[in-house]
Structures are given as structure tokens and as C-alpha cells.
């Protein structure tokens, strides 16, 4: 098992390293595009600053606290966006027949698609997340105990896994629809927006859906309650505040299942 994982890791790194060095050949282009990504996400940050210029708090959350949610959410989404570009472009692979080539190679389809399209310009969004989280942490007055640091790091990892699983499920649906379902955007880009604000502001149905079915509440809101010592008006069991890794792994398994089902269903688009 470990040897297999090690083999996968090595292959992934090799495939990705080749793409990264190719993209770095066009250095100016890379820098400009990363800058573009940075500015794109900067707009979300400006929105938060603008609304807190006029309103003192959002459902009891202050600017630094919302900035914390936004930073964690943006980082997690940014990492998933960087890693999962291949899943986002699966539609093209199916249409051009490239996916058939993937099937003939002596390696798993999942790892091959995962490694097929890593756009390093997407570090722009990650840089934005670092900035937001840095700002939030410097504004906040949190006593950083080891468990809190651990919960934060695990939240970033779990959030990355949760968003990545959404990309994978969206891609798996492509095996049936061929065309990328743009509704996936609701869960990816829309999800990133959703986790930037505290969950109690949303209507019950939406909140339950994004807690128990697509577990976006575990990306930033629940870990933030633990780290910032905030009360939970929703009265969820406190254990859930540190349960993000478990939930993320379960969701990833579901995504893997959807992927396997999709690959089995795949028939190609014809000659």
C-alpha cells in the first residue's frame, strides 16, 4: 500500500514538474497571469472591506473574523484550483479523444488526470489567501495554542480536499454529459464565496445542504468557531468543529467512487 502510494507520488511529481518547467519558460507571461489571478481575487477582499466600512458587523462577526473565514476559504479553494485543473478540463480530453490515451497507459486514470493540467499562474489566488489570512491573524487577538495551530493547518488541508472532491465529482459527471456542467461552478466558485461568510446568515435549507451533503461548512466556519472561540448559534455538536479531516476523507471517498463509476461508464465520443 505504502509502496504503491510512493510510486503514485513519484509519478505525479514527475508529470507535474515537466509542466511547471514548461510554463516557467514564459516567465513574463507567467508573472502577468499570476498577477491577473491575484487581482481577480483581490476584488473579493475589497468587497469585504467595503461592506465593513458601512456596517459594524455581520451576524455578530467582525471584520477580522470574516477576513479569517475568507482567508481560510480562499487558501483551500486556491490549492484545489491549482491541483485540480486537470479535472476541470476533462471535457476537452473526452471530446478530443485524449482520454482514450489515458485509458491505455499503465497507470490509474485518477492520478493521470490529476497530473494533466497544473496551471501555476493559479498561485495568484493562493497569494491572495495568504494575504487575507495574514491580515486576519494580525488583526485578531488569538492565543495560538498548539491545538489551535493544528486545527488551522488541518482545516486548510481538509478544505483543499473538500473543494478538490467537488472538482472530481463535477468531472465525473462529465462522463455522462460530455460538456462540462457549468453548474459545478455553483459549488466551486460559488462555494468559495459561500465559505467566506459565517454560515448562520444562510437560510436553513442551504445551510444544512452545505453542512451535511456538500460539507463546505467544514472548510472554514466550523474550524473558525473553535480557533476564534466563538459561540455557535446553530448549536451543532462542538466535536464537529474539529471533525473537518474526517469529513473531508469521507467526501473524498465519495468523490473517488463517483469517479470510478464515471470511468466505467465512459464509452468515448465515437470515431
Amino acid at each position: 500500500m505504502l509502496a504503491r502510494l510512493h510510486g503514485h507520488g513519484e509519478m505525479y511529481l514527475r508529470l507535474v514538474a515537466a509542466q511547471v518547467s514548461a510554463q516557467l519558460q514564459y516567465r513574463v507571461s507567467f508573472l502577468l497571469q499570476s498577477f491577473g489571478q491575484f487581482v481577480a481575487t483581490f476584488i473579493d477582499l475589497v468587497t469585504i472591506l467595503l461592506i465593513f466600512n458601512r456596517f459594524p458587523s455581520l451576524a455578530g462577526w467582525t471584520l477580522p473574523e470574516v477576513m479569517f473565514l475568507y482567508g481560510v476559504g480562499t487558501l483551500a479553494f486556491g490549492f484545489s484550483d491549482l491541483l485540480c485543473g486537470g479535472f476541470d478540463s476533462l471535457s476537452r480530453m473526452i471530446k478530443t479523444g485524449t482520454f482514450d490515451r489515458v485509458l491505455t497507459r499503465p497507470a490509474g486514470t485518477f492520478i493521470q488526470v490529476l497530473a494533466s493540467d497544473l496551471q501555476i499562474r493559479r498561485v495568484g489566488r493562493i497569494a491572495q489567501g495568504v494575504l487575507a489570512l495574514g491580515l486576519a491573524i494580525s488583526w485578531l487577538d488569538v492565543t495560538w495554542t498548539p491545538p489551535k495551530v493544528l486545527v488551522l493547518l488541518l482545516a486548510l488541508l481538509s478544505g483543499t480536499i473538500i473543494f478538490s472532491s467537488i472538482w472530481v465529482i463535477g468531472a465525473a459527471i462529465t462522463f455522462w454529459t460530455v460538456e462540462t456542467s457549468e453548474v459545478t461552478n455553483v459549488f466551486t466558485y460559488g462555494g468559495a464565496e459561500l465559505v467566506s461568510y459565517p454560515m448562520p446568515i444562510y437560510a436553513d435549507g442551504i445551510r444544512r445542504f452545505f453542512t451535511f451533503i456538500v460539507p463546505l461548512a467544514f472548510v472554514s466556519y466550523l474550524p473558525a468557531l473553535y480557533i476564534l472561540d466563538l459561540p455557535d448559534p446553530l448549536g451543532l455538536p462542538p466535536i464537529l468543529q474539529v471533525a473537518s479531516p474526517v469529513v473531508a476523507m469521507m467526501f473524498l471517498l465519495a468523490a473517488r467512487g463517483a469517479w470510478e463509476l464515471g470511468v466505467r461508464h465512459y464509452q468515448g465520443t465515437g470515431s
Partner: peptide, 14 residues
């Protein structure tokens, strides 16, 4: 929807 919920929560303060 997302923006609407944010604004509803904000307007509770003024």
C-alpha cells in the same frame, strides 16, 4: 442568493 443573505445580515445593524 449568497449576496442577498450577506446584505440581510448586514442590514440588521442599520
Amino acid at each position: 442568493f449568497l449576496r442577498a443573505y450577506v446584505f440581510i445580515a448586514l442590514f440588521q445593524t442599520r
